Lab assay of single mutants.
Amino acid sequence: MAEQVALSRTQVCGILREELFQGDAFHQSDTHIFIIMGASGDLAKKKIYPTIWWLFRDGLLPENTFIVGYARSRLTVADIRKQSEPFFKATPEEKLKLEDFFARNSYVAGQYDDAASYQRLNSHMNALHLGSQANRLFYLALPPTVYEAVTKNIHESCMSQIGWNRIIVEKPFGRDLQSSDRLSNHISSLFREDQIYRIDHYLGKEMVQNLMVLRFANRIFGPIWNRDNIACVILTFKEPFGTEGRGGYFDEFGIIRDVMQNHLLQMLCLVAMEKPASTNSDDVRDEKVKVLKCISEVQANNVVLGQYVGNPDGEGEATKGYLDDPTVPRGSTTATFAAVVLYVENERWDGVPFILRCGKALNERKAEVRLQFHDVAGDIFHQQCKRNELVIRVQPNEAVYTKMMTKKPGMFFNPEESELDLTYGNRYKNVKLPDAYERLILDVFCGSQMHFVRSDELREAWRIFTPLLHQIELEKPKPIPYIYGSRGPTEADELMKRVGFQYEGTYKWVNP
Protein backbone atom coordinates (compact mmCIF):
# COMPACT_ATOMS: atom_id res chain seq x y z
CA MET A 1 0.00 0.00 0.00
CA ALA A 2 1.39 3.40 -1.00
CA GLU A 3 2.44 5.79 1.77
CA GLN A 4 -0.16 8.52 2.21
CA VAL A 5 0.98 12.13 2.26
CA ALA A 6 -0.02 13.84 5.50
CA LEU A 7 -2.70 16.52 5.11
CA SER A 8 -3.49 19.38 7.45
CA ARG A 9 -6.87 19.53 9.17
CA THR A 10 -7.74 22.50 6.95
CA GLN A 11 -7.12 20.38 3.84
CA VAL A 12 -9.07 17.44 5.24
CA CYS A 13 -12.04 19.68 6.11
CA GLY A 14 -11.81 21.22 2.64
CA ILE A 15 -12.31 17.75 1.14
CA LEU A 16 -15.32 17.19 3.41
CA ARG A 17 -16.83 20.54 2.37
CA GLU A 18 -16.37 19.69 -1.29
CA GLU A 19 -18.21 16.38 -0.78
CA LEU A 20 -21.00 18.09 1.13
CA PHE A 21 -21.55 21.11 -1.11
CA GLN A 22 -21.61 19.23 -4.41
CA GLY A 23 -24.93 17.63 -3.45
CA ASP A 24 -28.17 19.43 -4.28
CA ALA A 25 -29.72 18.76 -0.84
CA PHE A 26 -27.40 21.11 1.07
CA HIS A 27 -28.72 24.67 0.84
CA GLN A 28 -25.49 26.49 1.66
CA SER A 29 -26.75 30.04 1.08
CA ASP A 30 -30.16 29.71 2.81
CA THR A 31 -30.72 31.01 6.33
CA HIS A 32 -31.09 28.23 8.92
CA ILE A 33 -32.08 28.38 12.58
CA PHE A 34 -31.01 25.48 14.80
CA ILE A 35 -33.18 25.50 17.94
CA ILE A 36 -32.01 23.47 20.95
CA MET A 37 -35.01 22.68 23.14
CA GLY A 38 -33.62 21.85 26.57
CA ALA A 39 -30.52 24.01 26.10
CA SER A 40 -29.70 24.00 29.82
CA GLY A 41 -29.45 20.20 30.07
CA ASP A 42 -26.55 17.74 30.04
CA LEU A 43 -27.13 16.48 26.50
CA ALA A 44 -27.12 20.03 25.15
CA LYS A 45 -23.94 21.13 26.89
CA LYS A 46 -21.97 17.89 26.41
CA LYS A 47 -23.05 16.88 22.90
CA ILE A 48 -25.22 19.27 20.92
CA TYR A 49 -23.49 22.61 21.48
CA PRO A 50 -20.02 21.03 21.00
CA THR A 51 -21.20 19.30 17.80
CA ILE A 52 -22.62 22.51 16.34
CA TRP A 53 -19.35 24.26 17.24
CA TRP A 54 -17.24 21.60 15.49
CA LEU A 55 -19.39 21.83 12.36
CA PHE A 56 -19.16 25.63 12.43
CA ARG A 57 -15.39 25.59 13.06
CA ASP A 58 -14.80 23.28 10.11
CA GLY A 59 -17.01 25.29 7.75
CA LEU A 60 -19.58 22.52 7.40
CA LEU A 61 -22.68 24.50 8.38
CA PRO A 62 -24.62 26.69 5.94
CA GLU A 63 -23.18 30.22 6.00
CA ASN A 64 -26.20 31.90 7.59
CA THR A 65 -26.89 29.59 10.53
CA PHE A 66 -28.19 30.87 13.87
CA ILE A 67 -28.34 28.80 17.07
CA VAL A 68 -31.17 29.48 19.52
CA GLY A 69 -31.28 27.85 22.94
CA TYR A 70 -34.61 27.36 24.74
CA ALA A 71 -35.22 26.08 28.27
CA ARG A 72 -37.05 26.96 31.47
CA SER A 73 -33.94 28.26 33.24
CA ARG A 74 -33.30 31.99 33.08
CA LEU A 75 -29.91 31.96 31.34
CA THR A 76 -27.85 34.11 29.01
CA VAL A 77 -25.58 33.14 26.12
CA ALA A 78 -22.69 33.75 28.52
CA ASP A 79 -24.16 31.09 30.85
CA ILE A 80 -24.56 28.63 27.98
CA ARG A 81 -20.98 29.32 26.94
CA LYS A 82 -19.65 28.78 30.45
CA GLN A 83 -21.31 25.37 30.81
CA SER A 84 -20.70 24.04 27.28
CA GLU A 85 -17.34 25.46 26.17
CA PRO A 86 -15.26 23.06 28.32
CA PHE A 87 -16.54 20.27 26.01
CA PHE A 88 -15.56 22.12 22.78
CA LYS A 89 -11.84 21.20 22.91
CA ALA A 90 -11.13 24.57 21.29
CA THR A 91 -7.51 25.65 20.83
CA PRO A 92 -6.12 29.15 21.54
CA GLU A 93 -5.80 29.66 17.77
CA GLU A 94 -9.58 29.27 17.44
CA LYS A 95 -10.41 32.16 19.76
CA LEU A 96 -11.71 34.51 17.03
CA LYS A 97 -13.73 31.70 15.45
CA LEU A 98 -15.19 30.92 18.87
CA GLU A 99 -16.29 34.53 19.33
CA ASP A 100 -17.95 34.45 15.91
CA PHE A 101 -19.74 31.22 16.86
CA PHE A 102 -21.22 32.62 20.08
CA ALA A 103 -22.20 35.82 18.28
CA ARG A 104 -24.60 33.62 16.29
CA ASN A 105 -26.08 32.20 19.50
CA SER A 106 -29.06 33.50 21.42
CA TYR A 107 -31.25 32.19 24.22
CA VAL A 108 -34.93 32.37 25.13
CA ALA A 109 -36.34 31.27 28.50
CA GLY A 110 -39.83 29.81 28.59
CA GLN A 111 -42.07 27.02 29.81
CA TYR A 112 -42.56 23.79 27.86
CA ASP A 113 -46.35 23.82 28.15
CA ASP A 114 -47.06 27.55 27.77
CA ALA A 115 -48.28 28.85 24.39
CA ALA A 116 -47.17 32.42 25.15
CA SER A 117 -43.58 31.22 25.67
CA TYR A 118 -43.52 29.69 22.19
CA GLN A 119 -45.00 32.81 20.64
CA ARG A 120 -42.16 34.73 22.25
CA LEU A 121 -39.66 32.20 20.85
CA ASN A 122 -41.17 32.59 17.38
CA SER A 123 -40.96 36.40 17.58
CA HIS A 124 -37.31 36.08 18.58
CA MET A 125 -36.57 33.86 15.55
CA ASN A 126 -38.44 36.17 13.18
CA ALA A 127 -36.28 39.06 14.41
CA LEU A 128 -33.09 37.30 13.29
CA HIS A 129 -31.71 38.18 9.84
CA LEU A 130 -34.17 36.62 7.33
CA GLY A 131 -35.51 34.65 10.30
CA SER A 132 -39.14 34.64 9.15
CA GLN A 133 -38.23 32.72 5.99
CA ALA A 134 -35.45 30.58 7.47
CA ASN A 135 -35.34 26.79 7.51
CA ARG A 136 -35.87 25.65 11.10
CA LEU A 137 -34.41 22.59 12.85
CA PHE A 138 -35.79 21.80 16.31
CA TYR A 139 -33.64 19.48 18.44
CA LEU A 140 -35.61 18.00 21.36
CA ALA A 141 -32.89 17.47 23.99
CA LEU A 142 -35.63 16.82 26.53
CA PRO A 143 -37.15 14.03 28.62
CA PRO A 144 -39.92 12.19 26.73
CA THR A 145 -42.47 13.30 29.34
CA VAL A 146 -42.62 16.76 27.76
CA TYR A 147 -42.48 15.71 24.08
CA GLU A 148 -46.24 15.98 23.55
CA ALA A 149 -46.55 19.51 24.95
CA VAL A 150 -43.39 20.73 23.20
CA THR A 151 -44.22 19.34 19.76
CA LYS A 152 -47.79 20.65 19.96
CA ASN A 153 -46.59 24.17 20.79
CA ILE A 154 -43.84 24.12 18.16
CA HIS A 155 -46.41 23.13 15.55
CA GLU A 156 -48.87 25.82 16.61
CA SER A 157 -46.49 28.74 17.11
CA CYS A 158 -42.94 28.23 15.80
CA MET A 159 -43.08 26.76 12.30
CA SER A 160 -41.43 28.57 9.42
CA GLN A 161 -44.06 29.63 6.89
CA ILE A 162 -41.59 29.83 3.97
CA GLY A 163 -38.63 27.56 4.75
CA TRP A 164 -38.76 23.90 5.71
CA ASN A 165 -39.20 22.58 9.28
CA ARG A 166 -37.54 19.48 10.74
CA ILE A 167 -37.74 18.04 14.23
CA ILE A 168 -35.08 15.84 15.84
CA VAL A 169 -36.32 13.49 18.57
CA GLU A 170 -33.90 11.84 21.01
CA LYS A 171 -34.37 8.34 22.41
CA PRO A 172 -35.96 6.82 24.38
CA PHE A 173 -38.96 6.77 22.06
CA GLY A 174 -41.32 5.52 24.74
CA ARG A 175 -40.93 2.72 27.29
CA ASP A 176 -42.79 -0.05 25.47
CA LEU A 177 -44.95 -0.66 22.40
CA GLN A 178 -47.99 1.10 23.83
CA SER A 179 -46.23 4.29 24.97
CA SER A 180 -44.17 4.41 21.78
CA ASP A 181 -47.31 4.09 19.64
CA ARG A 182 -48.96 6.86 21.63
CA LEU A 183 -45.98 9.18 21.14
CA SER A 184 -45.61 8.28 17.44
CA ASN A 185 -49.30 8.88 16.77
CA HIS A 186 -49.12 12.25 18.51
CA ILE A 187 -46.02 13.45 16.61
CA SER A 188 -47.36 12.07 13.31
CA SER A 189 -50.55 14.08 13.78
CA LEU A 190 -48.44 17.26 13.81
CA PHE A 191 -45.58 16.55 11.39
CA ARG A 192 -45.09 14.58 8.20
CA GLU A 193 -42.73 11.59 8.37
CA ASP A 194 -40.21 13.44 6.19
CA GLN A 195 -40.04 16.15 8.88
CA ILE A 196 -39.37 13.75 11.78
CA TYR A 197 -35.81 12.63 12.58
CA ARG A 198 -35.71 10.03 15.37
CA ILE A 199 -32.04 9.99 16.25
CA ASP A 200 -30.13 6.88 17.28
CA HIS A 201 -26.54 8.13 17.40
CA TYR A 202 -25.19 4.63 16.74
CA LEU A 203 -26.47 4.91 13.18
CA GLY A 204 -24.00 7.79 12.77
CA LYS A 205 -20.98 5.63 13.59
CA GLU A 206 -18.57 5.15 10.69
CA MET A 207 -18.37 1.36 10.96
CA VAL A 208 -22.12 0.93 11.39
CA GLN A 209 -22.61 2.84 8.14
CA ASN A 210 -19.80 0.78 6.59
CA LEU A 211 -21.82 -2.41 7.07
CA MET A 212 -23.89 -1.65 3.97
CA VAL A 213 -20.83 -1.01 1.80
CA LEU A 214 -19.02 -4.12 3.03
CA ARG A 215 -22.04 -6.27 2.31
CA PHE A 216 -23.27 -4.91 -0.98
CA ALA A 217 -20.11 -3.61 -2.67
CA ASN A 218 -17.98 -6.75 -2.29
CA ARG A 219 -18.66 -9.83 -4.41
CA ILE A 220 -16.80 -12.13 -2.01
CA PHE A 221 -19.32 -11.66 0.80
CA GLY A 222 -22.55 -12.19 -1.14
CA PRO A 223 -22.37 -16.00 -1.54
CA ILE A 224 -21.33 -16.66 2.08
CA TRP A 225 -23.72 -14.26 3.86
CA ASN A 226 -26.32 -16.87 4.84
CA ARG A 227 -27.22 -19.79 7.12
CA ASP A 228 -25.22 -22.27 5.03
CA ASN A 229 -21.96 -20.57 6.02
CA ILE A 230 -22.60 -18.44 9.11
CA ALA A 231 -23.04 -20.31 12.39
CA CYS A 232 -23.99 -17.30 14.52
CA VAL A 233 -23.84 -13.52 14.72
CA ILE A 234 -22.79 -11.73 17.91
CA LEU A 235 -23.53 -8.03 18.43
CA THR A 236 -21.69 -6.60 21.42
CA PHE A 237 -21.75 -3.33 23.35
CA LYS A 238 -19.49 -3.19 26.42
CA GLU A 239 -18.73 -0.30 28.76
CA PRO A 240 -15.92 -0.51 31.35
CA PHE A 241 -17.63 1.89 33.78
CA GLY A 242 -20.76 1.76 35.91
CA THR A 243 -23.42 4.38 36.54
CA GLU A 244 -21.05 6.52 38.68
CA GLY A 245 -23.72 8.48 40.52
CA ARG A 246 -26.10 8.72 37.55
CA GLY A 247 -27.97 5.51 38.23
CA GLY A 248 -31.27 7.23 39.02
CA TYR A 249 -31.92 7.96 35.35
CA PHE A 250 -30.57 4.59 34.18
CA ASP A 251 -32.74 2.71 36.68
CA GLU A 252 -35.90 4.00 34.99
CA PHE A 253 -34.96 2.26 31.74
CA GLY A 254 -32.36 -0.47 32.25
CA ILE A 255 -29.84 -1.86 29.79
CA ILE A 256 -32.36 -3.40 27.36
CA ARG A 257 -34.16 -0.11 26.72
CA ASP A 258 -30.94 1.91 26.91
CA VAL A 259 -28.84 -0.05 24.41
CA MET A 260 -30.27 -3.32 23.13
CA GLN A 261 -33.70 -2.37 21.79
CA ASN A 262 -32.17 0.43 19.71
CA HIS A 263 -28.39 0.39 19.05
CA LEU A 264 -27.88 -3.38 18.82
CA LEU A 265 -31.15 -4.08 17.03
CA GLN A 266 -30.33 -1.46 14.41
CA MET A 267 -26.96 -3.12 13.80
CA LEU A 268 -28.70 -6.49 13.52
CA CYS A 269 -30.92 -5.08 10.78
CA LEU A 270 -27.93 -3.88 8.76
CA VAL A 271 -26.29 -7.31 9.03
CA ALA A 272 -29.41 -9.30 8.18
CA MET A 273 -31.29 -7.19 5.60
CA GLU A 274 -31.52 -7.91 1.89
CA LYS A 275 -29.94 -5.58 -0.65
CA PRO A 276 -32.13 -2.46 -1.00
CA ALA A 277 -33.22 -1.21 -4.42
CA SER A 278 -31.00 1.85 -3.90
CA THR A 279 -29.33 3.88 -1.17
CA ASN A 280 -32.45 6.03 -0.97
CA SER A 281 -33.53 6.46 2.67
CA ASP A 282 -36.86 4.67 2.34
CA ASP A 283 -35.45 1.81 0.26
CA VAL A 284 -32.94 1.07 3.02
CA ARG A 285 -35.47 1.43 5.82
CA ASP A 286 -37.98 -0.77 3.97
CA GLU A 287 -35.47 -3.63 4.08
CA LYS A 288 -34.74 -3.07 7.77
CA VAL A 289 -38.45 -3.28 8.56
CA LYS A 290 -38.70 -6.58 6.65
CA VAL A 291 -35.97 -8.03 8.90
CA LEU A 292 -37.72 -6.89 12.08
CA LYS A 293 -41.00 -8.43 10.93
CA CYS A 294 -39.21 -11.79 10.68
CA ILE A 295 -38.13 -11.71 14.34
CA SER A 296 -40.45 -13.21 16.95
CA GLU A 297 -40.88 -11.82 20.45
CA VAL A 298 -37.98 -12.55 22.80
CA GLN A 299 -38.32 -15.83 24.70
CA ALA A 300 -37.39 -15.76 28.40
CA ASN A 301 -35.31 -18.96 28.08
CA ASN A 302 -33.04 -17.08 25.65
CA VAL A 303 -32.27 -14.25 28.07
CA VAL A 304 -29.64 -13.70 30.77
CA LEU A 305 -29.85 -10.61 33.00
CA GLY A 306 -27.05 -9.41 35.27
CA GLN A 307 -26.24 -6.62 37.70
CA TYR A 308 -22.69 -5.63 38.63
CA VAL A 309 -21.35 -5.79 42.17
CA GLY A 310 -18.21 -4.21 43.58
CA ASN A 311 -14.83 -5.80 43.01
CA PRO A 312 -13.15 -6.33 46.40
CA ASP A 313 -9.76 -6.27 44.67
CA GLY A 314 -10.55 -3.17 42.61
CA GLU A 315 -9.86 0.51 43.16
CA GLY A 316 -12.08 3.58 43.28
CA GLU A 317 -15.39 3.13 41.43
CA ALA A 318 -14.59 -0.54 40.75
CA THR A 319 -15.19 -1.35 44.42
CA LYS A 320 -18.79 -0.14 44.17
CA GLY A 321 -21.71 -2.16 42.89
CA TYR A 322 -24.80 -0.84 41.14
CA LEU A 323 -26.75 -0.81 44.39
CA ASP A 324 -24.00 1.27 46.03
CA ASP A 325 -24.88 4.18 43.73
CA PRO A 326 -26.81 6.57 46.03
CA THR A 327 -29.14 7.56 43.17
CA VAL A 328 -30.30 3.96 42.61
CA PRO A 329 -33.45 2.86 44.50
CA ARG A 330 -32.71 0.49 47.35
CA GLY A 331 -32.97 -3.16 46.34
CA SER A 332 -33.37 -2.35 42.63
CA THR A 333 -33.55 -5.36 40.32
CA THR A 334 -32.75 -3.34 37.19
CA ALA A 335 -30.34 -5.19 34.89
CA THR A 336 -27.01 -3.58 33.99
CA PHE A 337 -26.15 -6.52 31.69
CA ALA A 338 -28.25 -8.48 29.22
CA ALA A 339 -27.64 -11.25 26.72
CA VAL A 340 -30.51 -12.11 24.39
CA VAL A 341 -30.81 -14.54 21.48
CA LEU A 342 -33.01 -13.61 18.52
CA TYR A 343 -33.79 -15.50 15.32
CA VAL A 344 -34.56 -13.99 11.91
CA GLU A 345 -37.10 -16.43 10.54
CA ASN A 346 -36.56 -16.20 6.80
CA GLU A 347 -34.84 -18.27 4.12
CA ARG A 348 -31.44 -16.58 4.46
CA TRP A 349 -31.13 -16.78 8.24
CA ASP A 350 -33.34 -19.67 9.37
CA GLY A 351 -31.78 -21.25 12.48
CA VAL A 352 -28.90 -18.77 12.84
CA PRO A 353 -28.78 -17.27 16.35
CA PHE A 354 -28.26 -13.52 16.60
CA ILE A 355 -26.77 -12.96 20.05
CA LEU A 356 -27.11 -9.45 21.49
CA ARG A 357 -24.88 -8.66 24.48
CA CYS A 358 -24.54 -5.38 26.32
CA GLY A 359 -23.52 -4.26 29.76
CA LYS A 360 -21.91 -1.78 32.11
CA ALA A 361 -18.86 -2.22 34.37
CA LEU A 362 -17.36 -4.89 32.10
CA ASN A 363 -13.73 -5.67 31.30
CA GLU A 364 -13.32 -3.34 28.31
CA ARG A 365 -14.90 -0.70 26.11
CA LYS A 366 -16.00 -2.31 22.88
CA ALA A 367 -18.77 -2.33 20.31
CA GLU A 368 -18.58 -4.79 17.45
CA VAL A 369 -20.37 -7.11 15.06
CA ARG A 370 -18.88 -10.62 14.90
CA LEU A 371 -19.93 -13.21 12.34
CA GLN A 372 -18.71 -16.70 13.23
CA PHE A 373 -18.64 -19.19 10.36
CA HIS A 374 -19.30 -22.93 10.45
CA ASP A 375 -16.48 -25.42 10.98
CA VAL A 376 -14.62 -26.55 7.87
CA ALA A 377 -16.09 -29.81 6.61
CA GLY A 378 -13.74 -32.79 6.31
CA ASP A 379 -11.08 -31.69 8.80
CA ILE A 380 -7.58 -32.94 7.90
CA PHE A 381 -5.70 -30.98 10.57
CA HIS A 382 -6.64 -33.07 13.60
CA GLN A 383 -9.03 -30.53 15.16
CA GLN A 384 -6.39 -27.79 15.26
CA CYS A 385 -8.52 -25.36 13.23
CA LYS A 386 -10.66 -22.70 14.83
CA ARG A 387 -13.73 -21.15 13.23
CA ASN A 388 -13.29 -18.22 10.86
CA GLU A 389 -14.74 -14.91 12.03
CA LEU A 390 -15.45 -11.61 10.32
CA VAL A 391 -15.38 -8.75 12.83
CA ILE A 392 -16.55 -5.18 12.28
CA ARG A 393 -15.21 -3.17 15.20
CA VAL A 394 -17.36 -0.08 15.76
CA GLN A 395 -15.44 1.38 18.70
CA PRO A 396 -12.82 2.09 19.81
CA ASN A 397 -10.21 1.90 17.01
CA GLU A 398 -12.50 1.33 14.03
CA ALA A 399 -11.46 -1.76 12.10
CA VAL A 400 -12.58 -4.65 9.93
CA TYR A 401 -10.69 -7.90 10.29
CA THR A 402 -11.09 -11.55 9.39
CA LYS A 403 -9.86 -14.20 11.78
CA MET A 404 -8.54 -17.08 9.71
CA MET A 405 -6.18 -20.03 9.81
CA THR A 406 -2.72 -19.91 8.21
CA LYS A 407 0.26 -22.25 8.22
CA LYS A 408 2.59 -21.71 11.13
CA PRO A 409 6.09 -21.00 9.78
CA GLY A 410 8.22 -24.12 9.94
CA MET A 411 8.59 -27.61 8.55
CA PHE A 412 5.14 -28.98 9.25
CA PHE A 413 1.52 -28.25 8.31
CA ASN A 414 0.55 -26.79 11.65
CA PRO A 415 -2.29 -24.25 11.34
CA GLU A 416 -2.46 -21.17 13.57
CA GLU A 417 -4.87 -18.26 13.93
CA SER A 418 -4.07 -15.02 12.15
CA GLU A 419 -5.97 -12.12 10.59
CA LEU A 420 -6.57 -10.02 7.53
CA ASP A 421 -6.87 -6.53 8.95
CA LEU A 422 -8.15 -3.13 7.86
CA THR A 423 -7.58 -0.73 10.74
CA TYR A 424 -8.95 2.70 9.90
CA GLY A 425 -6.33 4.58 11.89
CA ASN A 426 -3.57 3.05 9.74
CA ARG A 427 -5.24 2.99 6.34
CA TYR A 428 -6.99 6.37 6.48
CA LYS A 429 -4.43 8.64 8.12
CA ASN A 430 -5.66 11.73 6.26
CA VAL A 431 -9.36 11.26 6.86
CA LYS A 432 -11.38 13.05 9.52
CA LEU A 433 -13.96 10.57 10.77
CA PRO A 434 -16.93 12.73 11.80
CA ASP A 435 -18.38 12.23 15.25
CA ALA A 436 -21.72 10.39 15.09
CA TYR A 437 -23.65 13.50 16.13
CA GLU A 438 -21.79 15.64 13.56
CA ARG A 439 -22.76 13.24 10.79
CA LEU A 440 -26.38 12.93 11.87
CA ILE A 441 -26.96 16.65 12.40
CA LEU A 442 -25.49 17.30 8.95
CA ASP A 443 -27.88 14.65 7.60
CA VAL A 444 -30.78 16.67 9.02
CA PHE A 445 -29.51 19.83 7.32
CA CYS A 446 -29.30 17.82 4.07
CA GLY A 447 -32.71 16.17 4.51
CA SER A 448 -31.28 12.63 4.49
CA GLN A 449 -33.23 10.21 6.71
CA MET A 450 -31.31 7.01 5.92
CA HIS A 451 -29.65 6.95 9.34
CA PHE A 452 -32.77 7.81 11.32
CA VAL A 453 -35.49 5.52 12.64
CA ARG A 454 -38.84 5.41 10.84
CA SER A 455 -42.09 4.95 12.76
CA ASP A 456 -42.71 1.40 11.49
CA GLU A 457 -39.13 0.38 12.41
CA LEU A 458 -39.70 1.72 15.89
CA ARG A 459 -42.98 -0.15 16.27
CA GLU A 460 -41.48 -3.50 15.22
CA ALA A 461 -38.50 -3.04 17.55
CA TRP A 462 -40.79 -2.45 20.53
CA ARG A 463 -43.02 -5.39 19.49
CA ILE A 464 -40.02 -7.72 19.83
CA PHE A 465 -39.01 -6.58 23.32
CA THR A 466 -42.20 -5.35 25.03
CA PRO A 467 -43.48 -8.75 26.30
CA LEU A 468 -40.09 -9.46 27.92
CA LEU A 469 -39.93 -5.98 29.45
CA HIS A 470 -43.43 -6.34 30.88
CA GLN A 471 -42.58 -9.79 32.27
CA ILE A 472 -39.45 -8.39 33.95
CA GLU A 473 -41.42 -5.51 35.48
CA LEU A 474 -44.14 -7.85 36.74
CA GLU A 475 -41.99 -10.67 38.11
CA LYS A 476 -38.92 -8.58 39.08
CA PRO A 477 -36.44 -11.46 38.67
CA LYS A 478 -33.20 -10.96 40.59
CA PRO A 479 -30.40 -10.36 38.08
CA ILE A 480 -27.28 -12.51 38.29
CA PRO A 481 -24.46 -10.65 40.09
CA TYR A 482 -21.18 -10.19 38.21
CA ILE A 483 -18.00 -8.52 39.42
CA TYR A 484 -17.13 -5.02 38.22
CA GLY A 485 -14.47 -5.40 35.49
CA SER A 486 -15.38 -8.99 34.53
CA ARG A 487 -16.76 -10.35 31.23
CA GLY A 488 -20.23 -10.47 32.76
CA PRO A 489 -22.22 -13.43 34.13
CA THR A 490 -20.84 -16.85 33.16
CA GLU A 491 -24.47 -17.82 32.46
CA ALA A 492 -24.29 -15.56 29.39
CA ASP A 493 -21.34 -17.57 28.06
CA GLU A 494 -23.31 -20.76 28.69
CA LEU A 495 -26.30 -19.38 26.77
CA MET A 496 -24.08 -18.47 23.82
CA LYS A 497 -22.50 -21.93 23.83
CA ARG A 498 -25.93 -23.57 24.00
CA VAL A 499 -27.12 -21.82 20.83
CA GLY A 500 -23.96 -22.61 18.86
CA PHE A 501 -21.25 -20.01 19.50
CA GLN A 502 -17.76 -21.40 20.04
CA TYR A 503 -15.58 -19.26 22.29
CA GLU A 504 -11.94 -20.24 21.85
CA GLY A 505 -10.20 -17.54 23.89
CA THR A 506 -6.96 -18.35 22.07
CA TYR A 507 -6.69 -15.21 19.94
CA LYS A 508 -7.18 -11.52 20.69
CA TRP A 509 -7.07 -8.74 18.10
CA VAL A 510 -4.50 -6.05 18.89
CA ASN A 511 -4.73 -2.56 17.42
CA PRO A 512 -1.64 -2.32 15.13
Rank of each mutant, 00 (worst) to 15 (best):
L140G: 12
W54R: 11
A25Q: 15
D79F: 10
F66L: 12
F253I: 10
L211A: 03
A78G: 12
D30R: 14
G131T: 09
K95A: 12
F138P: 02
F101H: 02
S73L: 00
T145H: 09
I35M: 10
F241I: 07
K97W: 06
E156I: 12
A141R: 00
M159S: 10
N210E: 06
E244A: 11
W54V: 12
C158W: 06
I168A: 09
R120N: 14
A71H: 01
Q119W: 11
Y49H: 03
T51F: 08
R182E: 13
F191A: 10
S73C: 06
Y249I: 02
E193C: 02
F88Q: 05
V108T: 04
P223C: 07
A71W: 00
N64M: 06
L60R: 08
L96H: 08
T76V: 05
S29D: 08
T51C: 09
G245W: 10
L235N: 03
D100P: 04
F241S: 04
P50L: 07
V68W: 00
D251C: 05
A90R: 01
L61Y: 02
P50Y: 01
G248T: 12
G247E: 09
K89Q: 14
H186K: 15
V77L: 15
I167G: 01
R198E: 03
R215L: 02
G110L: 04
F216A: 00
D176C: 08
G242K: 04
S188H: 09
D194I: 08
A25D: 12
A25E: 12
D181I: 02
W53C: 01
Q28W: 10
F88L: 08
G245S: 08
E19M: 11
H124F: 11
V213C: 10
P143Y: 00
W225D: 00
G59V: 03
L140M: 11
F250H: 02
Q119D: 13
I33S: 09
R182T: 12
S106Y: 09
Q178A: 07
I230C: 10
Q22S: 06
N122C: 11
N229C: 06
A78K: 15
Q209L: 02
S123M: 13
N185C: 09
A103P: 05
A71V: 01
I35V: 08
A90D: 06
Q119L: 14
A134T: 11
R81G: 06
Y147T: 03
V233C: 07
E193M: 03
